[in-house]
Amino acid sequence: MGRPDARTLVLAAAFLLALAAIVAPQLQRPTDAYRLLAVVDITGSMNVRDYSFEGRPASRLDTVKRTLSGLAARLPCGSRMGLGIFTERRTYLLFEPVEVCADFAPLEGAIGALNWRMAWEGDSYIYSGLYSAIDLAGPLDADLIFLTDGQEAPPLSASGAPAFSGEPGKVRGLVVGVGGVEPAPIPKFDRDGREIGFYAMTDVPQENRHGLPPTGSEQREGWHPRNAPWGADEAAGQEHLSAVRTDHLKDLAEATGLTYAPLADAGTLAAEVEASARPHPVAGTMDTAPLPGALALLLLAGLYLAQLWDRRPLFLRNRRISAS
């Protein structure tokens, strides 16, 4: 018996590779997962309908809920996400981070149940909510996703937001700006939750008249240093309309060591999270079986295709011969 021919060798190799695939080891490979605390602004301005979904107007809050569910579905397994709500001056923790794959159903249910009526007060001190969210996230060893439109209600005083007293960059994550750039009217509800129109200019404070008056106020009509330091006129402004306050949120993000990102689809948000949050390695395995398996498949396919080429019909051979 002579030297085994190529076919035998290829078949033997495919057989051995298939055997190798059976016993191929599962390599331990840590994968990156994330530990997040998502905090959703549920104040009144989040009811503004300046997004659309399936051709219909959608409120900011509904859009945020949909995006968060999508984000939870996209995060690698082993990641954990907690949920908090923000209104008034504080962030309220609903639950500590839970695993996004194993506990997806309750997580999605809880995100779906977020509602502006959970708010215990109507004010919206964004900076204070963000600072308290960072305080909550720190002990949980979680990174933050703070979703807000950045509209302070009442407006910030002339001196701006109080400085962040924590350590910037200790908690990382995103400040996500929600809302359109065009100011849009804010829906108004009665005590039973029925919508009764929109806020008008006189319904909301247009200027914060606590603290020191802003520079240049002495130019205002009727200004008097003691009796009318902000001028004599009623404040007028756009505070009854709402647009995303990108500059304010960027400033807050910079002061606290977070990253600003505008709200986009869940895929983009997931990429932003991966770019800004601290990865936590979780034990993962990498199966090495596909490597010998794929080689075996390649060899076998090559063998059969070569055979097919050898046995190609006569007219193909004729053409080749006549061409050469």
Partner: peptide, 14 residues
């Protein structure tokens, strides 16, 4: 105000 935290679930870790 009432705040729904978790819907009825048998995921006890959550």
């Amino acid at each position: 105000s009432p705040i729904p935290v978790l819907p009825l679930t048998d995921h006890h870790e959550a």
